[in-house]
Nucleic acid binder design. Structure first.
Length: 293
DNA sequence: AACTTCATCAACCGCGGAGCT
DNA sequence: TAGCTCCGCGGTTGATGAAGT
């Protein structure tokens, strides 16, 4: 908002020497002669026109085909975060902020997942908003923005059960499984929002085209999963679950060892509202959740 | 007015997963 | 199966303007 459109000259081009580092993984970005830094209106027009004509995808070769001196990554980023027609610009509304907070409490720094549930918002935007606004806001409220737990828990309660059970551990957590990324709405197929339905919470649900990924999930449909997900978003239920978890004696003491499986497991274990009452059902739903996230 | 510090956010970087050969 | 390429993600950087001194 502050910078309506970065149409300024390329200038210093963020001059990190890293760009010169040899990396066979991203050769397109190391080629000399490619432009970097802020996009000009002319470049924006070239990119937008091309994608309107030819569609998204094939990012690596897109710049050449579109007549741009950019790497594919840069083009993709510009399109996804700025040029896409569905991108909503402007202030994050209070209800969006509330949704981000709740989703982050559930998902951690899974920005693309969070963005996929908030129409018109990009992962980059949400990530920035979190880092500049929400994390500070939580800290000012005495809440750890990573765990959503009080920063200074009552020292008298020495119980390790106060440790977060649902929050994602900090990035370098080798034991936290990197869950498959379904990339449901945020990328890959344009404006996915059109195919989603929106519940009363403003949450984008459903519309995962690849619903045949688990034959064993016949009975556990996306609707069921969405309901389950919704139930997790629900504030009251979540608080309930936390309270129940705190009473469970077997809660691991090392939050760093917690993966999302534990999160879902804990939610499932404590959630009587989902209607899954035996272990098999729990396991199946958990598998489904892990596939989704 | 000049300078410094802070806040914001677009863009870059490196990594890992998926798909293909 | 191994190697390669492409894509997408999350973390980080740096340019810019605002606010403070």
């Amino acid at each position: 908002m502050r910078k309506p459109s970065p149409a300024t000259a390329t200038a210093s081009a963020s001059g990190t020497p890293a760009s010169a580092a040899s990396s066979s993984k991203t050769p397109c970005c190391t080629k000399v002669g490619l432009k970097r830094g802020p996009w000009t209106p002319e470049e924006d027009e070239l990119l937008a026109d091309y994608i309107k004509r030819e569609g998204e995808g094939r990012w690596r070769t897109l710049p050449k085909r579109a007549g741009l001196l950019r790497c594919g990554k840069s083009c993709r980023l510009r399109w996804m975060n700025y040029l896409r027609p569905s991108v909503k610009r402007g202030q994050i509304a209070p209800d969006e902020e509330d949704l981000i907070l709740r989703l982050h409490r559930l998902l951690g720094n899974r920005w693309s997942l969070i963005a996929g549930r908030i129409p018109g918002r990009t992962d980059n935007e949400i990530k920035n908003y979190w880092n500049t606004h929400l994390s500070k806001k939580l800290i000012s409220q005495g809440i750890d923005p990573r765990t959503h737990k009080p920063l200074n828990p009552n020292p008298s309660s020495s119980s390790p059960q106060q440790e977060p059970i649902h929050a994602r551990p900090p990035p370098p957590q080798p034991s936290a499984p990197k869950l498959p990324n379904p990339n449901l709405e945020s990328a890959g197929h344009g404006d996915g929002e059109e195919n989603n339905w929106q519940n009363s919470d403003g949450l984008m649900m459903g519309s995962h085209g690849n619903s045949n990924d688990d034959e064993n999930m016949d009975y556990c449909t996306d609707d069921v999963f969405s309901s389950f997900f919704n139930s997790l978003i629900n504030e009251d239920l979540f608080v309930n679950q936390q309270q129940q978890q705190l009473q469970q004696p077997h809660v691991p003491t090392d939050p760093g060892s917690l993966g999302y499986g534990v999160i879902w497991e804990a939610a499932l274990t404590s959630s009587a509202t989902t209607g899954f009452n035996n272990e098999d059902e729990h396991k199946r739903l958990l598998d489904h959740a892990n596939k989704r996230f």
